[in-house]
Design a binder for these strands. Structure first.
Length: 556
RNA sequence: GCGCUUGCAGCUUAGCUUGGAUUUGAGCGUUCGGUUCCUAACCGAAAGAUCGAGGGUUCGAAUCCCUCCAGGCGCGCCA
């Protein structure tokens, strides 16, 4: 915010593209214009140029001071004017504050979460779920039309495994009583057998092949497994507040794989090699579309899925929020799609993996997985215990405990750059202090509490010039950055940019909270100005957290 | 072997896309201090970093380029 006014003023004196930077320290102003590039063109020292510019640039309304500091021209915004303009905007836009129109008339499809049927959702699924959810919310906030896609892993040789295992070692009673657990046990058992004897892999392939050909027994078991799993997933999504527009999984698109393959063949892009149908996409990376036993592959189904989605949803951009171990697959898929003539924007929003503390991936196959449900239960229990200690009179304890737990888990996942691998550490998830979701939720609750207690209401007509304490000015300054942070996070598909900013803002707010009491302030005008600052801060925190998928309670 | 990716205080990390005002900014943990006062899930202070190693480009490199080392992931009938 307010950057445009400064750029416009600079344009009157400087030619070409102007990009401003943010000084490293508050004492150096709000925006800076570095003169290095100009120095080369003008063959003068950047220091000299900065000095000349500082004197000659027409001062925009919102700016109170322009100085030259070394090779930089520094712009100081007038805090009172900034605050007035911010308060008016926030108090009128409310839960829309920070939104933009960058997505106007654009459609974005976002594939995320995509758990595998027949296995419990393990904690590793959290990354895709949380990042995809947050990106969906941010795009919607910026007026994109968003389509949320959950590409269920409900097809493939793994079902051959499950069917074989169930028929040989399974029990109908156990399946009925605790379906997911039973299926999971069978899955682990089957893989133990494969370790010892390769022939089991063949049994699995056989059963999957039967399933693909529509064998009645196979199909009926498959659909039973799928039903149970989806029910289980929905419970977790409800708890997390995550929604989808489309649950079509691999099975749904598998039927369309043949026509997708036909299209590739028509364009003469495919060839037969060792009995399998492959596409060569340059150095050493063939993409297999059909196995030698005629069954489809993950790649062909994913291609079919992409083509069908292009048809159905007419998106401009599609995001695949999937772990980085699949980068090669997506590189191939996107390359093939562009060879087929599609011009949409395809993005693999790759994220790091949760690694098991003992090392290596959290593989369900080896029984090394940590289940989402267990982590949720434990976190909720701790949140409840913390509430009992700190705020025993709270009314809706269970509901708040759930909200706090989800906030802790979401924020913990979104706070760091998504490309990095994370070693699973329950103690970190269970921490509610420092750079955490509960810290921000608590900050929000404090603000809400003051507003509730105050006898007056926040107003844009307060005297913002009374907010002269450095801590107050810092909050105001940070507030102006909120809309841009959302745009940054959006441009890079990185929610941690917003999360990091919110922590910075929360710290500033808490400092102000300690230094500048509001309800006890005697001067009514100061009180009103502070209350307005508090309400605007609260709104910002509410909006920011919401975009990360976190609900901010007004009491906790 | 090839490809992608990561490497910063004891631990977890931001900053790298677009090199600059930096002697790298946080959180946890450690040590010390703050609650007759709007929720201490808070605030303040101190100690703690040869930014994996070496070279190069540049007036200037945590940031760009090269080599090496270490971790993670992937490399045709798993998804």
């Amino acid at each position: 915010m307010f950057e445009k006014e400064i750029v416009d003023a600079l344009k009157k004196k400087v030619k070409g593209d102007i990009s401003l930077s943010v000084p490293p320290d508050d004492s150096m102003g709000d925006f800076a214009f570095p003169c290095f590039t100009l120095a080369k063109e003008m063959k003068k020292s950047p220091v000299q140029i900065a000095e000349e510019l500082a004197k000659t640039i027409p001062m925009p309304e919102i700016v109170s001071k322009i100085t030259a500091t070394g090779p930089y021209v520094n712009f100081f915004l007038d805090p009172a004017k900034v605050a007035e303009s911010l308060f008016a905007e926030i108090l009128s836009k409310k839960d829309k504050f920070g939104s933009s129109n960058v997505g106007k008339d654009k459609t974005i499809a976002i594939e995320f979460s995509s758990p595998n049927i027949g296995k419990p959702m393990h904690f590793g699924h959290l990354r895709s779920t949380v990042i995809g959810h947050s990106l969906s919310l941010m795009h919607e906030f910026s007026n994109f039309r968003v389509i949320r896609l959950n590409y269920l892993g409900d097809w493939g040789t793994q079902f051959g495994k499950l069917i074989y295992a169930y028929l040989n070692w399974g029990s109908a009673e156990k399946l009925h009583a605790c379906p997911i657990k039973h299926l999971y046990d069978l899955y682990v058992k089957f893989n133990e057998h494969v370790e010892k004897d390769e022939k089991f892999q063949g049994f699995a392939r056989e059963w999957f092949s039967k399933l693909e050909k529509g064998d009645q027994e196979a199909v009926s078991l498959w659909s039973k497994f799928k039903h149970y799993s989806v029910d289980e997933f929905r419970k977790i999504y409800d708890l997390l507040g995550v929604t989808f527009d489309c649950y079509n999984g691999e099975a749904y698109y598998a039927k369309k794989a043949d026509s997708a393959i036909a299209l590739v063949e028509k364009k003469k892009l495919a060839e037969i090699d060792e009995g399998a149908l492959i596409v060569r996409l340059g150095n050493d990376m063939p993409m297999m579309l059909r196995k030698s036993d005629e069954s489809t592959t993950y790649a062909s189904r994913d291609l079919a899925t992409l083509l069908d989605r292009i048809d159905e949803f007419h998106f401009d951009t599609i995001l695949y929020v999937v772990g980085h171990e699949q980068s090669l697959h997506f590189e191939q898929l996107f390359k093939l799609a562009s060879l087929l003539g599609f011009k949409q924007k395809f993005v693999h929003v790759a994220h790091g993996l949760y690694l098991s503390p003992e090392g290596g991936k959290m593989a369900t196959r080896k029984g090394k997985a940590v289940f989402m449900e267990d982590v949720l239960d434990e976190t909720i229990a701790l949140a409840k215990k913390t509430i009992e200690e700190k705020n025993p009179d709270l009314k809706n304890k269970d509901e708040v405990a759930r909200t706090v737990a989800v906030g802790a888990i979401f924020f913990g996942d979104l706070f760091n750059d998504r490309v990095k691998d994370v070693v699973f550490d329950l103690q970190r998830i269970l921490s509610f202090e420092g750079d955490t979701g509960p810290y921000l939720m608590y900050t929000h609750a404090r603000a809400a509490s003051i507003i509730k207690k105050a006898k007056i209401r926040a107003s844009k007509d307060c005297d913002a010039s009374l907010l002269s304490d450095p801590s107050e000015q810092r909050v105001i300054k940070l507030m102006t950055r909120f809309p841009d942070k959302i745009l940054d996070a959006l441009a890079q598909y990185k929610p941690h940019i917003l999360a990091q900013y919110l922590i910075e803002f929360g710290r500033a707010f808490n400092e102000f909270y300690h230094k500048c009491p509001c309800t006890q302030e005697k001067d009514k005008n100061v009180q009103l100005a502070r209350l307005s600052l508090i309400e605007c801060s609260r709104q910002l925190l509410e909006n920011g957290l919401r975009l990360l998928g976190i609900t901010a309670p007004s009491e906790m």
